[in-house]
Design a protein around this nucleic acid. Structure first.
Length: 556
RNA sequence: UGGGGCGUCGACAAAUGGUAAGUCACGGGUCUUUGGAACCCGCAUUUGUAGGUUCGAAUCCUACCGCCCAGACCA
């Protein structure tokens, strides 16, 4: 596959290691893998890992990235997630080619490796209870103590392990453990569990197995069997690396991958942990895993975020070992950056205010040319926009008593209707409550298209839609899901309280009949689930940078 | 805790002993059919702190400080 990444900085430390390994001849190419567990949806944090693994492999001749489902826990995994993950990885623009693997396909081989460990007297069946095992393990500051079952003979262990497999014992009755060192300062090395009994059907292997390998045993050997050269994972697996290496070193195998850890992605104004995402979905705080406010790939896709902008974002954040929190503004900028070049511009009015052009003939009606890309008209050409005596403009584009720096419509003021005419507000109609309900304006016929022959200029240009031609639409204004930069810094479920009450505002709008993707106030996307030609539904992907709003906020 | 990591601009992040890149954010400006976009300018005399080595230190050494990981028969 081709390289999507346009890298801006020097090589990150992982690419540097890969380059060094190629230069030294340690490896001829680079084989990486993205190893999700099929028990949940992918989010933008996974996107970082995906772009790293697939991106790195794509940059090296002969490089390849495997998609491997790390499915050794029958109780949480499901085919639904496998399909969702495959779809998301593809959508992000990556291709595992023929290299789709499942750890569950290695169960028999893994069992064989376990047997070899037992034969070498490096693993034993332990019959302590779960609680006892925990107690024997010691603590961070105190060494553990040996299990009384630690010295069972290889023959005894072999027999017990075989009987574990055959289903003779209940869950929790025995486990297989590596025989390493109960006093090791790294607790991961205190005779870690390798296999547990679980009488549960697996979504792929059904009832074939009732013992399942643990992550630490499964992952390193899967990597080794696939010839993974660089096994990239996040920082929390740092303590597992010694075990990763111990297992590979103590099992008959030809290949030894290198595990390298990097910092996972943290983004402010959102949450990324699986538990919290589940709470948002199941608690009904969002509409589902693809709610456009969620940082899930499915949510971002539904919102209208492009894969290119996600890849660009991942490139910009870099890869390092320091824990960090990336500013949501960087993601938003990556999105705008991409959309600015791709989204055709059309006009829409979110909060309609009627405007009557008094000097425009009642029976008249005309079509004006408007470019889809104002900065580059040839890109997509022009469309016809109907104009007539009655129009709608955005309510916030009018102020009866405008502050100094408000350049849009106000009584007596002239502004440009984009791609149409200059109009001057001559009268303001209000209802009993004193609310502005209609504006009366006059237009200058000489300014058709938006330029005045006499060269006079107007300071404001506003969007509009011809009332009789307007298409009603529902617009969903999405914003950051949380109002706090660090919503999960508190305890437990406190983060729910920090949900931004305006993370979704639904408004009835009118849009021009040539429905497209961009309107004032942001970039929009037709909702893939709910949008129809008859009743349009638009999602705001990302708001525009709006310095007026900032000025208004400051003066308040 | 005789464990494992990490500390460079508000946020990310380069710099591999030779004199602190880039991006976002922020501030100013030019231009403009939105105050968007584009373009220009500014934004770390200093790299957690204190010493030391060196002609020269973000990079090497020592000590200290701070933060993260070190629960699960989860991954």
């Amino acid at each position: 596959m081709s390289t999507h990444m346009k890298r801006t900085a020097g090589l990150d430390f992982i690419r540097q290691i890969a380059a060094d390994d190629l230069a030294s001849g340690k490896h001829k190419t680079v084989i990486t893998r993205f190893p999700p567990e099929p028990n949940g949806y992918l989010h933008i944090g996974h996107a970082k890992s995906i772009t790293l693994n697939f991106g790195l492999a794509s940059e090296i001749p002969g490089g390849q990235c495997h998609l491997r489902f790390d499915d050794s826990n029958p109780e949480t995994e499901d085919m639904e997630y496998v399909e969702a993950i495959k779809r998301d990885v593809k959508w992000l623009g990556f291709d595992w080619d023929k290299h789709l693997y499942f750890a569950s396909d290695y169960f028999e081989k893994l069992y064989g490796f376990a047997v070899s460990l037992i034969e070498a007297n490096k693993a034993y069946v332990c019959s302590l209870s779960e609680e006892e095992i925990r107690k024997y393990r010691g603590t961070v500051t105190q060494p553990g103590t040996d299990s009384p079952y630690r010295n069972r003979t290889a023959a005894e262990n072999l027999d017990l392990f075989e009987r574990m497999r055959s289903g003779e014992f209940a869950d929790g009755k025995h486990v297989l453990r590596a025989k390493i060192d109960m006093a090791a300062p790294n607790m991961k090395m205190r005779d870690p569990l390798l296999y547990r009994i679980r009488h549960a059907p697996h979504y792929r292997t059904g009832n074939t197995w009732c013992i399942y390998p643990m992550y630490d045993f499964t992952h390193c050997l899967s990597d080794a069997m696939e010839g993974i050269t660089h096994s990239l994972c996040t920082l929390e697996f740092e303590n597992n690396r010694a075990l990763y290496e111990w297992i590979i070193d103590n099992v008959p195998g030809p290949f030894k991958p290198r595990q390298i850890e990097f910092a996972r992605l943290n983004l402010n104004y959102t949450v990324m942990s699986k538990r919290k995402l589940v709470e948002l979905v199941e608690g009904g705080h969002v509409s589902g895993w693809d709610d456009p406010r969620l940082p899930t790939i499915a949510g971002l896709r539904r919102r209208g975020v492009t894969p290119e902008s996600i890849r660009s974002f991942c490139d910009r954040i870099g890869v390092a070992r320091a824990n960090s929190v990336v500013d949501m503004a960087l993601l938003e900028n990556s999105i705008r950056d991409d959309l600015n070049l791709k989204a055709p511009r059309v006009m829409g009015v979110l909060d309609p205010l009627k405007v009557v052009i008094l000097n425009y003939p009642e029976d008249r009606d005309e079509e004006l040319d408007a470019p889809y890309f104002p900065d580059d008209p040839p890109k997509m050409g022009y469309r016809k926009v109907p104009f007539s005596r009655e129009l709608y403009i955005e309510r916030r584009d009018f102020m009866e008593d405008p502050p100094k720096k408000f350049f849009r419509l106000a009584p007596g003021r002239e502004v440009r209707l984009r791609w149409a005419y200059f109009i001057t507000c001559v009268d303001v109609k209000k209802n009993e409550q004193g609310e502005v309900v209609e504006l009366h304006c006059n237009y200058d016929p000489q300014t058709r298209g938006g330029d005045s022959p006499d060269g006079r200029r107007v300071k404001g240009t506003i969007h509009w839609v011809s009332a009789s031609h307007a298409v009603p639409a529902q617009v969903r204004l999405y914003d950051r899901l949380f109002a706090e930069p660090m919503p999960d810094s508190g305890k437990d479920s406190d983060f729910i309280q920090h949900i931004n009450p305006h993370s979704l505002d639904i408004v009835d709008a009118v849009v021009e009949r040539s429905l497209c993707d961009a309107m004032p106030g942001g970039y929009f996307f037709t909702d893939p689930e709910d949008h129809t030609a008859g009743s349009p539904v638009f999602n705001r992907i990302v708001p525009l940078r709006d310095s007026w709003a900032k000025v208004a906020g400051k003066s308040k």
